[in-house]
């Protein structure tokens, strides 16, 4: 049986982790590779690096972070943030990423999704959708949730699938940062509209928040940042909570 993936996400700027992290015994809490190794040892099912670097130099640093992580962690790596083209995707895949998340560029020109799928295969293309409720539907926002697009999130998810996305990373802008749980109606709307896997993001505040995204929302994976970084929720606790609620998880013996 396929298991629910638990995916810690790290925000990386100029090669350093931003947002505080609080792990005992960490030599350098700002080094994403050190953090990746800790999550690897705790049995994370996959890791996500979100590159929030604006500068050109910082982008090169990100490739180095991906390369160094892939040398030490033999687990799936998804990298997103600032991916504009199929060439960007190829560079990240060559550095050791398994999947590349495309956000604003895909919204601006959905053909980027097709071009990325042609270069890296569908399984390598994640389309990241940031959505916020507007009236009775969900609208896509880009540029870190600042810019409304007028695009219906459910319709866009279908288009992303049709154009070759292998997965959708769905972030609720209404829930992100609130720690009040995932946006279940949004997840239901998207997971019932597509046949590709959907990763739930935005709103996890406790281990108990994870299971509803899977059991009610239909998500295949749960992504969270701060609850894992601050040690509020350990990965073993997350696994136990999912399993207790009836969402299958990978047995992991640390």
């Amino acid at each position: 049986m396929l298991k629910t993936r638990i995916i810690p996400c790290l925000d990386v700027k100029d090669g350093r982790t931003v947002k505080g992290v609080n792990f005992v015994g960490l030599r350098d809490a700002g080094d994403p590779v050190e953090l990746a190794k800790i999550y690897d040892a705790q049995g994370a099912d996959e890791l996500c690096f979100l590159d929030i670097t604006a500068s050109h130099e910082g982008r090169g640093t990100m490739l180095d972070v991906v390369r160094r992580t892939a040398e030490q962690c033999f687990m799936p790596l998804t990298v997103g943030g600032g991916v504009r083209s199929a060439d960007d995707l190829v560079l990240l895949l060559r550095s050791g990423a398994d999947k590349v998340a495309i956000n604003s560029a895909a919204v601006a020109d959905p053909d980027v999704i097709s071009r990325c799928a042609a270069k890296g295969g569908r399984q390598a293309v994640v389309v990241a959708i940031d959505a916020r409720q507007t009236g009775n539907h969900w609208e896509i926002f880009t540029h870190g949730g600042r810019k409304p697009t007028g695009i219906n999130a459910v319709e866009f998810a279908k288009e992303a699938e049709r154009r070759g996305a292998g997965e959708i990373l769905l972030t609720s802008m209404d829930k992100d940062g609130t720690k009040s749980g995932f946006d279940i109606p949004l997840l239901q709307a998207i997971t019932s509209a597509v046949t590709i896997p959907v990763v739930a993001s935005g709103g996890a505040g406790s281990a108990a928040d994870l299971a509803p995204a899977v059991l009610e929302g239909g998500a295949n994976a749960v992504l969270a940042a701060s609850i894992f970084h601050f040690g509020e929720v350990g990965l073993s606790e997350a696994r136990a909570a999912l399993a207790a609620a009836g969402a299958p998880v990978r047995p992991f013996d640390s």
Partner: peptide, 29 residues
Amino acid sequence: DLAVPHMGWNGLEIEQDHPILTGLGDEPH
């Protein structure tokens, strides 16, 4: 309830006693 791609960790059911599949532990995923 069956997304495609089949993406993620799944349990391995070993069908054949094979040297390459030995020592993988209980419930290998």
